[in-house]
Every structure is written in C-alpha cells, then in structure tokens.
Write a protein that binds this DNA or RNA. Structure first.
Lengths: 241, 241
DNA sequence: GTCTATAACGAGATAGAC
DNA sequence: GTCTATCTCGTTATAGAC
C-alpha cells in the first residue's frame, strides 16, 4: 500500500515538474501573457483536461511558476548571505546583490515574471507573499548583523518620513533603527532597478562593463543604508566569478 | 489642390491618432504581447487590411506606441527640469524624478511598455533610441548645471570602473567628471527601480507612504551623484502638488 | 480513489475565398 | 471590404482504465 502511494506520489511529482518545465519554456518563448495550458499539454503529449488534475486553472500554474521563481532567487540570495554569516562587512551585501543579479542573468524570463510588468488579468494570490520576501529578508539580515557588530552608521531621516519609517521598522525589523529600515526598503528597490535596466535592455548601447557598474552602485547603495566599508568594493570574490 | 492635400493629411493624422488611442486601450486591457491589429481595427469599425495603410505591421504600431510613451515621459521630465533652469539646487533633481513618477502613476501601462519586461518577439528599432534617452538627458542637464555652479561634490570612483566611466563620460557628457557620469547612469537605473517597484506591485502590503519614501530615496540618490543640498528633501513643491 | 481520454461549450482569433 | 470556415483558448462533464 505504502509503496503504491509512494509510486503514485512520485509520479505525481514528476508530472507536475514536467508541466512546470514545459510552462517555463513557453514563458521564454511567448511570455507569461500567452502561457497556455493547451499548448503545455500538447507539448507533453497529454490532453488539456488532464492538466487540471495538477493545476486547477491556468492562473494556478502561473502562480506555481511565480512561487518557484521567487524561491529560486531567494535560495540563491540566502546562500550568498550565509557565506560569512555574522560577519558585518559590506562585502556580504555586495555578494548577495551579485548573486541575485547572476540568477537574473541566468533566468531572464523567470526574472521578468516576478520583477517585470504584471501579467494582464492575473492577480497574485497570498501564496506568493512569503517567497517574494526572501531576498528582502536576506538583505535585512546582512544589515542586522552589521548593526549588532556596531558596523552601521545610521543614516539621516527626514522628519516627514518618520511615521512611515517607524511602521516599516515595526513590520520588517523592529530591532533596527527606523531610518535604516526605510533606507533598506529604498535600497532593495534600487538594487532591482539596476538589474532590471540591464536585463530589460535599457543599458543596451549605453553601458558596457555592467558587472563593474553594478558592483560599484551596489556598494554605494549599501553605504546609503549605513553599511561601512568592509573591504574594497571591486574585490575579486564575486558569487560566481 | 493644397486644401485637398491638407484635408487628406489632416484625416490621416486623425486616423493615425485614433488607431494609437485604441491600441493604448488594448495595451491596458490585454498587455503589449496580445496587441492585435485586427482587434484595433474591429473596435474602430475598420477592416484590418485598412490599418496597414497607416502601420505596415503590428511591430510598427508597437514601435509608435513606444516612441510616444518615451516622448511623453521625456516631455514631462524636460518641463520639470526647465523650471528653475540653471539653478543648481538638488530640488530640481527631485522635481524631475517626481514628475517622471507622476507620469508613470498616471500612465501605468505605457510605463510598463517602455520600462517593463520586453515584449516577446519584438526588438526595438533604432527609432526608439532618441526618445528613450530624453529623461536621461534631463538628469544629465540638472547635474551639469550643478557642476557649472560648482555645486557638485565629485564622488569617489573605484579604479576598476575608471575605463567604463571614461567611456560613459565621452559618450554622454564629456564636460562632466567620469565619476559623476558613472554615478549618474547608476542613479538613473535606481530611480526607475523605485518607480517600477511601486508600479509593479512590489510595494503592496509593504510601503504605505510611497511618495514620501520616493522623495527621500531620490534625494539620497542625488547625493550619490554629488548633488549638494539645495533645500529640504521633503519640500512642499512637488511637480503636481 | 486517481488518473487520462473524449467530447463539448462559448468566446475569440485567423486565413482565404469571394 | 465582407463572410465563412477553421483554428485556438480555458474550462467542464462524462466515461472508462488502473
């Protein structure tokens, strides 16, 4: 009995993975807006109705892809952040950012799925919120370690932003100064701005040495959060290089 | 003769505008990937083949929409930059950024078209390059004025980034220090990162006071380029407010 | 119970003949 | 420019295989 159930479950997992793999291929070829259950089924030699055993609707398949993508970047970021865990130097900040960038370059369509234009007619369910926050939590962790080691120069905060900063800190990191948390949220968006510009073609015919510009900018962004210099910003120890 | 030609040209301009307006509606409803000449024609009570007299292909229509969108943000940015032209204070930098953000909030789908994920199967022709650079040129102009008025603290530059910075400066602003131009390019991407995160839903359930966070972050980004304080970052003089 | 296959629906796009 | 025949799509109901 248990072997049968085991076999069934294994088969189910395999088919589910095959469906998502094929869906990812279509994502790359046609974009998320044109992701079609029928085309996925056809390519897999199944019939479209069979897919409904695995995903109750097209949007649920899309949600699964989104969650997978968030989990993939999140994992990469966590791995980069875990190296030298507890060390408060700015190199860890840069390492996490570079890891995210490398993942994005390696998986441009999945990146576009989660950080690009929203898919028309699709609204993300609650399930995506947790996975979506993983990268941000890693960045908070790096800054928290710096704060604990007193390696953080708390940035200035406009009086007008004080209430929002307090709210953000309460929500995201009650142990950090509100000014740091506010700067962190902005830094988070700016970091992905650099990646998106590179990936979405805005740097075409403009920027050549993209990794170097990225590292430099990320280091400066780290400073805006309060991180102090731990080592040279253009060190030879990238995540993959 | 000339009146007839004038009437014809006027009609042509009107129809072209109507086509683009309808296409923009579809952009909002279905996304750029699903933009279809046929649907546009149907909605306008025309037949699809008639559209080809105005746009040789779907991609050409898309290009026209993209150019229009770039020109629209560009115009808004130029207008905001022209107010107080020559004045080197950081308030102008913030004003331009806020103007761009307000345009983006008012035209989210056109913003997504130009700064969001690339449309699958579409590659932008050379025609888009000029309009696409207008916002960047405004930002360069603001920084240039500050530099001329000696209101610029040239930021530090990693030795590794020196060649790229020199190249960027030669291409974009030979009269500015390379370190400033490199920082400017990064700042440009970071600024749109903030707008994209807000527009694409990444700030949902996270950030409430978005304009305030934006103004604060933009002011900090201005500092990273070397702009000095000209006035309080949260002044009451927004672009529209 | 778990899965796949057949067939069908209503809506929409598309190609080509006229 | 119009009309029609033929595609696609998401989704459901149903029937049968393991």
């Amino acid at each position: 009995m248990s072997t049968i159930r085991g076999a069934r479950e294994r088969a189910r997992i395999e088919v589910t993975a095959a469906i998502k793999d094929e869906a990812r291929k279509q994502l790359a070829a046609e974009g998320a807006a044109k992701l079609s259950l029928r085309a996925v089924a056809r390519e897999l030699g199944m019939v479209s109705s069979a897919l409904y055993r695995y995903f109750p609707s097209r949007d649920d398949l899309l949600t699964a892809l989104i969650v997978d993508a968030y989990d993939a970047v999140g994992e990469v970021a966590e791995a980069a952040g875990a190296k030298g865990d507890g060390r408060p130097d700015a190199g860890r900040w840069t390492a996490v950012a570079c890891a995210v960038r490398e993942w994005a370059l390696a998986h441009p369509h999945e990146y576009a799925l989660i950080y690009g234009s929203p898919v028309p007619g699709y609204t993300a369910p609650q399930d995506t919120v947790g996975p979506a926050s993983r990268v941000g939590l890693v960045l908070i962790g790096v800054v928290r370690d710096a704060h604990r080691a007193e390696g953080l120069a708390v940035p200035a905060l406009d009086p007008g932003l004080r209430p929002e900063a307090a709210r953000l800190a309460a929500d995201l990191a009650p142990d950090l100064p509100p000014a740091v948390v506010a700067a962190l949220v902005a830094a988070w968006a700016q970091l992905f701005g650099l990646i998106s510009f590179e990936l979405f073609g805005q740097f075409n015919r403009v920027v050549d040495a993209r990794e170097q510009l990225f590292r430099h900018a990320v280091h400066e962004i780290g400073r805006s959060v309060g991180l102090l210099e731990g080592r040279a910003p253009t060190g030879a120890d990238g995540p993959g290089a």
